[in-house]
Design a protein around this nucleic acid. Structure first.
Length: 407
DNA sequence: GTTGAGCGTT
């Protein structure tokens, strides 16, 4: 049997992982040792470049059909370039033990956002600042305790809370629980993987009860706008207070607009204030959802995200393309992209979480592939959760942004 | 002491 030497990061002590008879390495084998990993790469000694390992249908293929994996040491790839949290530098991007990130210095940021375009620093910052939600863990073994639950998820990052729901009388586990991470990256990785906890495959999802309902909105309503206040004006002006992630001006002109901030506290702090933009006094207030107010009688579709439209007005003005802002993160209907879901539900219509456009070609491995063709280790449990367990929650159509919501 | 889709006594 061939073994593949794999380390978490380049330079780390490798672990030998058993390859299959056909020479491939199962992704599940890799993930058993490196939770959250989605692929492998290695250093090409000739070119000194890093090469990705081919991945398909839950299998990783050796670089050479003849010589197999060789003596090379491979290191892990994690989704979207997110570093592993067990690595030493992880603290740089993990917010401290807070549910919500700390306020950024509210200083003059002005137009310093220009050279941040597409920078990984910016991406990381945005991702780091996205807030975590409690996640529900379904399908837990009866024997799983809060300690073992926590212990399991700590391989993904800091665990702020881990609880098992139990019968009050007997103390017996109800077979599900909740977990909360300290960083959004950890949360994303947990949501994109399946989990073998105490011998059972468990499903982790954003709970239905917490669509986004209790979270602080990042978006403000800007009233009394005049027609000559364009999105750049709004963005430029409000960037003084914190990073602006989106500006939306309803067309045709309707004398108001929406500004979305990275930080909900910034948005909050501005509510109720009057501001002067281009000599016009505009009024900032809560971008409260309009749903249910006047139109409960109209068979409008409010089922998705009902009672909560924060962050849903995500049309971008065309001229954002050259202002360095990311484009509209469009949700496709291909089986439910959890990143899109997270993007919507975190109130950021344009989270820079999707780097797929830059990873040309080779990095096709994503978390959905690993659920196919891999029954190697789940035979103790029938009814294994489906691969895209989030799909039932992401079936809403973002294209259904409803103009009628604007008044 | 059994069970196996779901959604959180606070």
């Amino acid at each position: 049997m061939d073994f593949v030497q794999v380390s978490e990061e380049e330079g780390d002590e490798p672990i030998e992982l058993p390859a299959e008879e056909d020479g491939t390495l199962l992704l599940s084998t890799l993930q058993a040792q490196f939770p959250g990993s989605c692929g492998l790469k290695y250093r090409n000694i000739d070119t000194q470049a890093v090469r990705g390992v081919r991945s398909n249908e839950g299998r990783l293929f050796p670089p050479s059909a003849e010589s197999g994996w060789g003596e090379d040491i491979y290191f892990c790839v994690f989704p979207k370039g997110i570093p592993n949290f067990r690595s030493s530098d992880a603290t740089e991007i993990i917010d401290s033990a807070a549910y919500r990130p700390i306020l950024p210095p509210v200083e003059n940021k002005r137009k310093s956002d220009d050279n941040l375009e597409n920078s990984t620093a910016k991406t990381k910052r945005i991702e780091t600042r996205l807030r975590c939600t409690d996640l529900i863990v379904l399908g837990l073994a009866w024997k799983t305790t809060e300690d073992s639950l926590r212990e399991y998820f700590e391989t993904y990052g800091e665990v702020l809370m881990a609880q098992i729901k139990k019968d009050v009388k007997s103390g017996q586990s109800k077979g599900f629980g909740f977990v909360r991470f300290g960083s959004y990256e950890a949360q994303m990785r947990v949501l994109s993987n399946r989990h073998l906890i105490d011998g059972r495959w468990c499903e982790v999802k954003v709970p239905n009860s917490k669509g986004m309902g209790h979270q602080v909105p990042c978006k403000v309503f800007v009233g009394r706008c005049t027609e000559d206040i364009n999105s750049d004006d709004l963005r430029d002006y409000f960037s003084k207070f914190g990073e602006v992630t989106d500006v939306f001006i309803p067309r045709p002109f309707r004398a108001f607009s929406f500004v979305t901030f990275l930080d909900p506290d910034v948005a909050q702090s501005l509510c109720g204030e009057d501001h002067i933009i281009k000599g016009v006094s505009v009024h900032v207030s809560n971008a409260a959802p309009k749903a249910e107010q006047n139109r409960s009688h109209q068979g409008q579709n409010y089922s998705y995200n009902a009672g909560n439209n924060f962050g849903m007005h995500s049309y971008h003005q065309g001229n954002h393309m050259n202002s360095g802002r990311s484009g509209h993160h469009r949700v496709t209907s291909q089986g439910g992209n959890f990143l899109s879901w997270m993007a919507q539900n975190s109130g950021h219509s344009n989270c820079n979480m999707n780097n797929s456009g830059r990873n040309k070609g080779s990095n096709n491995q994503n978390s959905s592939g690993m659920n196919k063709g891999d029954n190697s280790s789940n035979d103790q449990q029938n009814g294994c959760p489906p691969g895209n367990s989030w799909s039932n929650q992401s079936s809403g159509s973002q294209n259904s942004v409803d103009k009628s919501n604007f008044l």
